[in-house]
């Protein structure tokens, strides 16, 4: 009985020590957290500080005279927020909304925008060792929205640069 108990205690202490060691290693310090979501099978991420909330898709009011990837405006508790379909923003074909489709409201500065995504996945902590630098591949369109690339155990995740995504002038298609 008591031996059993001691074993358990030892085990717990070991885990704690391992965690503490991991914390001491700068490579393992959690820098930021990232909300991940799916577009097709690719996982994208947005840094948590940029995210305001995640909502279901409400009725969207279309607005004339805007690019086709801006689907219109929605009412989020009496605030009018424009919504962008990430699929068409990235030049992919739009798919009909299903019950996993949702809108991530992001904001930089005083501009809020809703992003339509296929589905949200998880919130993951990111440490230094996960980040691999964005390759400087000029001329590749989808690259300019990418802030960093995360190499995780379960695959590669692309973290989006929200301010570039929102700021039209910086992300104007190369014509």
């Amino acid at each position: 009985m008591s031996e059993n108990y001691n074993d358990k205690l030892q085990e717990l202490l070991n885990t704690q020590k391992a965690m503490e060691d991991a914390m001491k290693d700068p490579q393992n310090t959690v820098i930021t957290k990232v909300l991940t979501f799916y577009i097709d099978d690719q996982v994208y991420g947005i840094e948590i500080p940029d995210v305001i909330e995640i909502i279901e898709v409400p009725p969207i009011t279309a607005v004339p005279g805007v690019p086709s990837y801006i689907k219109g405006i929605i009412n989020v508790r009496s605030k009018i927020v424009p919504v962008v379909n990430i699929r068409s923003r990235f030049g992919k074909e739009e798919i009909p909304f299903n019950d996993r489709t949702c809108i991530i409201i992001v904001s930089t500065g005083d501009v809020s925008v809703g992003l339509i995504v296929d589905s949200v996945a998880d919130v993951i902590p990111v440490t230094e060792q996960h980040i691999s630098k964005t390759p400087e591949l000029t001329g590749v369109n989808s690259n300019k929205f990418i802030k960093s690339i995360l190499e995780m155990n379960d695959g590669i995740k692309l973290v989006l640069d929200v301010s570039k995504l929102i700021d039209e002038h910086a992300s104007e298609e190369n014509k």
């Binding site: 607005v63 005279g65 405006i73 009412n75 009496s78 009018i80 424009p82 809020s112 002038h169």
Partner: peptide
Amino acid sequence: PKYLSQYNIKAEGLSGCTVMGDGTI
């Protein structure tokens, strides 16, 4: 919303939007 001010919606003949009783715009 500010994000849309870069497109000339006003010139299209729309001056703004409003939230209606049922929450739609």
